[in-house]
């Protein structure tokens, strides 16, 4: 474990906590894409299949359970909670997320490290996570005013994978030049997708104005 990865995990955890707090405190999920949240549940389920078969550390197991639990509860709130589900922007959150999942799965069948169920599904989760934010970014462009919590949520979500990129650079130089193209390239794509959001988020923060994404 290095400081970059720990910072990344904490940033990721914080983003999810902020989203849960927003939903529980305001009893509203306005501006949040259910499609993206569902994709994250799939990402965690397919990535943590070895949760009960491989014990790495207390930290690793705990964080996996926290990520699975929180992401599933967010989807539950948005789908079934009587008050929250009324605030879901159903008619604006129209991104066909299956168009994202299916190519990722096909790509995982083609490009992986070894052809086993666990490894192919793990690879699928890496590819899927890279594009899972797209429905959320599209929804942000459609919703006129973005509330601060939602903006902070998306910013921290993008920042966590950027910190993971730094972690991979650090590990490359400190762990006999271990090369891991699949997470590296996917992480690069994932972080790049946030580029224009980062630009507008930082601009709105500097000029102390409301966050607005150009349509």
């Amino acid at each position: 474990m290095n400081v970059f990865r720990l910072a990344g995990d904490m940033t990721h955890l914080l983003s999810i906590i902020i989203l849960l707090l927003k939903i529980r405190a305001t009893k509203s999920c306005t501006g949040i894409s259910l499609k993206t949240q569902e994709l994250y549940v799939i990402v965690f389920l397919t990535r943590y299949l070895d949760l009960f078969t491989k014990y790495i550390s207390f930290y690793n197991t705990t964080m996996k359970l926290v990520f699975l639990g929180t992401s599933i509860s967010i989807v539950w709130y948005m789908r079934y909670h009587k008050v929250v589900k009324q605030t879901y922007n159903k008619d604006q959150d129209t991104f066909r997320h299956y168009f994202l999942a299916i190519p990722c799965f096909l790509l995982a069948l083609l490009i992986h490290h070894e052809f086993t169920v666990i490894e192919v599904l793990w690879t699928f989760s890496i590819y899927l996570e890279a594009v899972a934010i797209l429905p959320q970014l599209v929804l942000l462009q459609r919703s006129r005013n973005i509330d601060n919590l939602t903006g902070n949520y998306v910013f921290l979500l993008g920042a966590y994978r950027a910190l993971y990129l730094v972690n991979w650079v650090y590990r490359y130089f400190t762990e006999n030049h271990l090369v891991r193209w699949i997470p590296w390239l996917s992480g690069l794509v994932q972080t790049t997708l946030y580029a224009d959001f980062f630009y507008y988020y930082i601009k709105s923060w500097k000029n102390n104005e409301k966050l607005q994404l150009p349509a």
Binding site: D50, Y164, R180
Partner: peptide, 10 residues
């Protein structure tokens, strides 16, 4: 062994 190193990440 290469891939195992990755699996210690979240």
């Amino acid at each position: 062994v290469q891939q195992d190193a990755v699996k210690d990440e979240l």
